[in-house]
Nucleic acid binder design. Sequence first.
DNA 1: TATATATTTTAGCATACTACTAATATTATG
DNA 2: CATAATATTAGTAGTATGCTAAAATATATA
Lengths: 131, 131
Amino acid sequence: MEGAITKKERDCIIALHDNFSLPVRLFNIAEMLDIKAPTAHELVNRLISKGILQKNNGVISLTDYGGKIYGDIITAHRTMEIIFTESGVNSDEACSEIEKIDYLMDKKSIEKLLVNIGSPEKCPHGKPVKP
Amino acid sequence: MEGAITKKERDCIIALHDNFSLPVRLFNIAEMLDIKAPTAHELVNRLISKGILQKNNGVISLTDYGGKIYGDIITAHRTMEIIFTESGVNSDEACSEIEKIDYLMDKKSIEKLLVNIGSPEKCPHGKPVKP
DNA sequence: TATATATTTTAGCATACTACTAATATTATG
DNA sequence: CATAATATTAGTAGTATGCTAAAATATATA
């Protein structure tokens, strides 16, 4: 039950980790998620209060806990991506559909699905299943 | 894009179809979903305005469109249930985890997953994949 | 039929999430 | 310091979820 996250929170976590190498500030997040600064401000505050993000001198980053959540989402995402594409779903189509569910999936079940498909190390896009 | 539904709306659709053979009234829905009558009232009204439910003399039922949505959710649910259990996830565990995502899944992708696992007719509980 | 019971609906309120504009504060940079 | 860039606060709004209390409608039963 810990703390369920929402789709927008999920998108924020992923964007924060993936779309930038340089320090990420509030306005970067607003830009990445295509929302206005005050909306991003509230989203980020919510994630900070959930212990997922932290802010140092305006630079926003994932906490250790946030990093684990990121990893779980990505593992779920890529595991499902492999399962979808092996069934003949186009990989871009798979990606956009799986975005809707990856953050809601059970970690333990994903682990079993992953073992069952042979514990592959990479997804159809060549990215690591376990980042 | 048609009209996305929420988890509670999903639960209402499923409960309406599955938990009753007799005519279902508002108070039955409130009971089934463990919510108070006014909350159920609003939920049902929302589903009526989305064209999913209809009311005749206080008896609430799925519209044709609602029936199709029900079928899509069930097909997604049972398809995923088979995939989960074949990977070693306990079937009750699978069921409760899949409830969180079945109503969000893409119909076309589910169809491909289903074909890929051999188009089985029944889920682990013995219920039809295509109701 | 009249009263009692059951059921539905309305009204009012609350919280979480998402989103906006406009204004104000803060922090950099020139 | 002044301007530009960022961040924050305040105020508003809509959707979804939930509640209680009260009012309205049905449906039973005496």
